[in-house]
Design a protein around this nucleic acid. Sequence first.
DNA 1: AGACAATGTGATAAAATGATAAAAAGTTAC
DNA 2: GTAACTTTTTATCATTTTATCACATTGTCT
Lengths: 223, 223
Amino acid sequence: MDKRKILVVDDEQRMRILVSDFLSKKNFQVLEAGDGEEALEVFFHNKDIVLVILDVMMPKMDGWQVCREIRQYSQVPIMMLTAKANEKDELLGFELGVDEYIAKPFSPKILVARVEAVLRRTNAIDGEVKEIGGISIDQAAHEVRLDGKVVELSFKEFELLNYFISNQGVALSRERILNNVWNYDYFGDARTIDTHVKKLRSKLGDKGEYIRTVWGMGYKFEV
Amino acid sequence: MDKRKILVVDDEQRMRILVSDFLSKKNFQVLEAGDGEEALEVFFHNKDIVLVILDVMMPKMDGWQVCREIRQYSQVPIMMLTAKANEKDELLGFELGVDEYIAKPFSPKILVARVEAVLRRTNAIDGEVKEIGGISIDQAAHEVRLDGKVVELSFKEFELLNYFISNQGVALSRERILNNVWNYDYFGDARTIDTHVKKLRSKLGDKGEYIRTVWGMGYKFEV
DNA sequence: AGACAATGTGATAAAATGATAAAAAGTTAC
DNA sequence: GTAACTTTTTATCATTTTATCACATTGTCT
C-alpha cells in the first residue's frame, strides 16, 4: 500500500528533520518545504496529501497565509506549530480552519499522537474499506460495492462518490466539489458536476437517493 | 541463481575493501559507495539490492540521513556500522527501521554471520511458491505454472506477473508499476506496460482475465 | 398560479485512455 | 558477428470517459 503523504513546512531544517523522522517511522511519507511559497508549490502538485503541518513563523509567507491559500481550494487537515499558543492565535486559526495546534517545543510522541488523532477525526485514514448504508468503497482496489455487488464506476465517478462519503452530512457547494475532486486548476463549467451526479445516482440505483440536492447550494451525501 | 547484491557505504576505502572481501567470498556481489549521496545514487539505480550496510559517520550526508531517504521508498534490510553503539543511536535507528547494528571495530566473521542472519530473517518470507487461481509462481526457480504446466515467460513478464500477484486486489497505477517492476529511474513510456500486459494476458490464456483493466487508473490482479 | 431560477436529462462533441500490431533497439548465446 | 530473442518505442484504431449544450423539469417566491 502507498504511504500516506504529510507535508511538513518549517524554515528550520533541524525541525523538519525531527518531525520527518518520527512520522517516517510511523509509515508516513513526508514531503518537506522550507517556506510558504515552496509549501504551496508542493501542495498543489500532490493531490493526495493527507495532512499539512505548518510552522507559524516563516520568512516570505507565514503559516497563516499558507493556511489561507490552501483553504481556498482544499479541506485537507492542517496542524499549526506555534512558538507559544496564545488565545489570539487560536482564534485566528479557528477561523482559518486549523485542525490542531502544537506548541513548541513539543515531544515527538505528542506530535505523532496528535497526527494520528487528527487523521482519525477527519477520516483521512483510508487504507481500509469505508462502508455506509450498503455502499462499500475500497480505496485500494478502487472498487465500489452495493450490498456486496460490484458496481462499475468511472474514475471521476469513483472520486466523486469517495468525496461525498468522506464528507457525509456536509452540504458541499459545487465550487468546493470542483476544487477537491477535479484538479485545482480546472476552470470548466460547474454544471459538469450535475451530469456526474446524475450518472452516479443512476449507477447507485435506489441508493442514489443518498446524494441529496441542496437547493441553491450544491449536494449532500446523507443516508 | 544470480549473486545477491549488497551495498556497502563507508567513507574509508580500507573499510569498504575489508567488508567487500569477506562478503565476496561468501558469494555476494558487493556494490560500494564512498558517501551518502553516492549511496543513494547507487541504491536507486539497482533494483535488486538485498541489503545495505551503512557507516554512520560520513561526510556530506550521514548514515541516518541515507537510511531515512532509502526508507522513503524501500523496505530493504539496513545494517548500521557505528563507532560505539550508544543507547540514543539505537533508539534513533530503531525508529528509522534499521535491522541490525555492528559496533566498530568488528571481526569479519561477526559481520558475515550477522549479514546471513539478517537476510535469513527478512528473506524468509518470499522464498516460497505463491499459488493463486491455478497460477503458481516459484520465485527461486523463476518459473510459472498454469495448472501445473510450465509457461515460458520473459524476464520482465515474470517480474510483472510477480508484482501483480504480490499485490492482489490492489489497483496499481502505471506509475507505481513502473517504479516497482522497472528500475527506479526508468522514465520511458508508460505504454510499455500495456504491451507487456497484453503479452502476459495472452501467455496466461484464459487466466489472463485475472489481470483487469482499471480505467483511468491502471491494472489490477484479481481472481 | 405565474415568473423566475436552479436543477435534471439526454444527446453529442471532444478528449483521454487502452488495445493491438509492427517496427526499432537492445541483449544474449552461440 | 550474426541469429534468435527480448524489450521498448511508435503509430494507429477502438473504446470509454468527460465536458458541454439545449431543453425539460422541478422548486421557490410573491
